[in-house]
């Protein structure tokens, strides 16, 4: 039986949380189905930009913590 690739599958794959067998199946689905490919690319684009938004605490906070270490 052929298993359909769901949005949840794509989500886990985008975060490298699929197991090896599922990863292979999902990648083939992405390669073979333009709609799946588009859905995966959209997840990837959103996650990529979110990943770029890390913030830094102030130096003062760091110094306060280290003073109490």
């Amino acid at each position: 039986m052929i298993k359909t690739t769901t949005q949840i599958d794509l989500l886990q794959y985008a975060y490298n949380e699929s197991d090896l067998a599922d990863s292979d199946r999902i990648q083939r689905s992405i390669d073979g189905d333009p709609l799946v490919k588009e859905a995966f690319q959209e997840i990837h684009q959103l996650t990529s930009i979110l990943n770029d938004g890390f913030l830094e605490p102030s130096e003062k906070s760091i110094l306060n913590i280290l003073a109490k270490a």
Partner: peptide
């Protein structure tokens, strides 16, 4: 290392994870 009294260890942990925790 920190539990043995080396404060450099906590400085490294703060530096390693400050962005993830603060964000």
């Amino acid at each position: 290392l920190y539990q043995k009294g080396d404060q450099r260890a906590i400085s490294e942990l703060v530096s390693r994870y400050k962005q993830r925790i603060y964000s």
